[in-house]
Each structure stands twice: as C-alpha cells, then as structure tokens.
C-alpha cells in the first residue's frame, strides 16, 4: 500500500423527469455511504441535503439528468447536470421562495423555492451554470475536514 494514495469513490445516478418513485433514492444512498465511511455527521448531513435538493431539482424541472458524486477523504463533490428548460435568471432563482415549479408539483409539497438557496447554504463551494432552453449544471463541494 502506498502511503499517499488517496481513495476515490465515484457514484452515478440517472434521474428522470417527475419520477417520484425514485425521488430521494440517490441522496439516501449518498447519505448511507458517507455514514459508513465515517465522515463527520454534519458533513454527511450537509452533503445529503445538498444532493437531495439537486436531485429534486432535476426531477421537478428537467427532462432528464444525472447526479455524479466523487468522494475523497478530503471532500465530497456533487455534480448535477440536466437537460431541461434551464434558468434564465440565476440571480432570481437563488432567492428564497422563488419558484417556477408547476402547481401540480407544489401541491405535492415540493418546489417551495428553497432548493438552490439550501444548496448554497450547505455547500462549501457552489457553482451554477445554465443555458435557457438547454439545461442546468450544478457543482457542489462539501469539505470533509474539521471546521
């Protein structure tokens, strides 16, 4: 065994539009794994919640998408990419309570406009890029170190 060899675990989840049967499974799996790996409980929680919000965003808004997770001892990287309507005004989308979710989704208790603000709150690094009519991609990093 090499001293400085750092392990990486990569996970990939395919997400489908309005698939409420599978909804939350990706983030649950991420949470389970991080716990088993022994990450600090607040790191697990922040990563799981950020992943959940990213996952739900794809399911609510996009046609299809993918959640990629890369776990290393130092950080958890979550990339969510989708093919969908995209976000025309990112600044507006980052406001708490702003939502474009259809009524049907909101009646189910989702799409309250807290997804992106929550991700920003729980992430240590957060990037969002979007092209209207094409799709959105999020990059979320959670640091695993203390503090």
């Amino acid at each position: 065994m090499e001293e400085n060899f750092e392990q990486t675990i990569s996970l990939q989840f395919e997400l489908k539009s309005h698939d409420f049967v599978q909804a939350g499974e990706a983030s649950s799996e991420i949470r389970r794994r991080l716990k088993k790996l022994g990450f600090a409980s607040d790191v697990v929680r922040r990563a799981a919640i950020a992943a959940y919000e990213a996952e739900m965003n794809v399911i609510i808004h996009a046609r299809r998408g993918r959640l990629q997770v890369e776990i290393t001892p130092r950080q958890i990287l979550i990339i969510a990419q989708d093919e969908g309507p995209g976000i025309s005004n990112i600044h507006q989308a980052m406001q708490e309570g702003f939502t474009t979710a259809p009524d049907m989704i909101r009646e189910l208790g989702f799409g309250a406009g807290m997804g992106l603000p929550n991700i920003r709150r729980f992430a240590d690094e957060f990037n969002i890029s979007s092209c209207a009519g094409e799709g959105t991609s999020l990059k979320i990093v959670i640091y695993a170190g203390e503090g």
């Binding site: 750092e6 392990q7 990486t8 716990k35 088993k36 790996l37 022994g38 990450f39 001892p73």
Partner: peptide, 10 residues
Amino acid sequence: PLDSDINGAM
C-alpha cells in the same frame, strides 16, 4: 464505520 480511517474505509 468500515474503518477507523476514512481512506481505509473507502
């Protein structure tokens, strides 16, 4: 966890 050290657990 699977190991006391995260790298080992991974």
